[in-house]
Amino acid sequence: DEEIEKWIETLLKRNISLRVNGKDLEIGSEEFKEWVEKFIKEV
């Protein structure tokens, strides 16, 4: 979905790490990609 890709790009540009389930996810890491894929499937 384009919306999500733009959102991810924005996050990448800002180099933010997300806190997911109490863990810091490094943007661009494998864990982050897995989380994004799960997130996309749920939406």
Rank of each mutant, 00 (worst) to 15 (best):
E34W: 08
L11H: 01
E3C: 15
L11T: 01
F39W: 12
R14N: 15
R14A: 15
K23N: 06
W35I: 03
I4F: 08
N15W: 13
I27D: 02
L25H: 06
K6D: 08
I4D: 03
I4L: 09
W7D: 00
S29E: 03
D1A: 13
F32Q: 00
S17E: 04
F32K: 00
I16W: 01
N21A: 02
E2T: 11
F39E: 01
E31T: 03
K6E: 09
V20D: 02
V43K: 05
L12Q: 03
L18K: 01
K6G: 05
V43Q: 08
E30Y: 07
E9K: 07
K13W: 11
S29Q: 11
E9L: 07
L12Y: 03
K13E: 12
K33Q: 07
N21Q: 06
E26R: 05
I40V: 07
E26A: 09
K6S: 11
E3V: 08
W7E: 01
I8P: 00
E2F: 09
E31C: 10
S17M: 05
K13T: 06
L18N: 01
E26C: 14
L25E: 01
D24P: 10
V43T: 07
I4R: 04
S17R: 07
E42Y: 15
D24M: 13
D1V: 14
S29L: 15
N21E: 08
I8Y: 04
E2K: 13
E42T: 10
N15D: 12
L18E: 01
F32D: 01
F39H: 05
I16D: 08
W35C: 14
E34D: 12
L25M: 10
R14D: 15
S29T: 07
L25K: 01
D24G: 02
L18P: 02
I8D: 00
T10D: 13
I4W: 14
E26Q: 11
E3I: 09
S17D: 03
E3G: 09
E31K: 09
F32V: 04
V36K: 02
N15G: 14
L11G: 00
L12V: 13
K23A: 06
G28S: 03
N21V: 02
K23T: 04
K38A: 10
E30M: 12
L25D: 02
V20M: 05
K23F: 05
W35L: 05
K23D: 03
E30T: 12
E5P: 06
E30Q: 14
I8F: 05
L12D: 02
F39S: 01
W35H: 02
D1F: 12
E42A: 12
V36H: 01
W7C: 15
E26W: 08
I4K: 03
I40F: 11
W35V: 02
E9H: 05
K41P: 00
E9R: 07
I16T: 09
F39V: 08
D1S: 10
K33G: 03
K6T: 08
I8Q: 01
R14Q: 15
L12I: 09
D1L: 15
K6L: 06
K23Q: 05
R19I: 10
I27F: 08
E37P: 01
I4S: 03
E34Q: 13
I40S: 01
L18H: 03
K38Y: 08
R14H: 15
L25T: 02
D24L: 14
L12T: 07
F39R: 03
K6P: 03
V36Q: 00
I4Y: 09
E3H: 07
V43M: 13
K13L: 14
E9S: 07
E34A: 14
R19V: 13
D1M: 14
L11D: 00
E3D: 13
V36I: 12
W35N: 00
K6F: 11
I40M: 09
R14M: 15
K13G: 09
K33N: 11
L12F: 07
K38D: 06
I4M: 08
K41N: 06
N21D: 08
V43I: 13
R19Y: 07
E2L: 11
G22T: 01
E9P: 00
L25Q: 02
G28I: 04
V43F: 14
V43C: 15
D24W: 12
G22V: 02
S17A: 11
K41H: 04
E31W: 09
S17I: 12
I16P: 09
E34V: 13
W35G: 00
K38E: 05
N15E: 12
K6H: 12
E26P: 09
R19D: 03
E3P: 08
E26T: 06
L12A: 05
E37M: 14
R14K: 13
K6R: 09
V20T: 04
T10N: 13
K13C: 15
E3L: 11
E9Y: 05
L18I: 14
I8T: 02
K6M: 08
N15S: 06
W7S: 01
E37W: 11
K23S: 05
I4T: 04
L25N: 01
E31P: 03
L25V: 09
R14P: 15
I16K: 04
E42H: 08
K38N: 08
V43D: 04
R19S: 08
I16N: 09
K13V: 13
K23Y: 12
L12K: 06
D24S: 06
L18F: 12
K23L: 07
E3Y: 13
F39K: 03
L12N: 05
L25A: 02
E37N: 10
I27T: 05
E26M: 09
F39I: 10
E9I: 11
K41S: 07
W35F: 08
L18W: 04
E37I: 14
F32T: 00
K6W: 11
I16H: 04
F32W: 10
I16A: 07
E42R: 10
E34K: 13
E37H: 13
K23E: 04
E9M: 10
E37L: 13
V43P: 03
E42P: 04
E9W: 07
D1C: 15
G22Y: 05
E34P: 01
V20H: 03
E26K: 10
D24V: 13
K38T: 07
G22R: 01
G22W: 11
G22K: 02
E5L: 14
E34H: 08
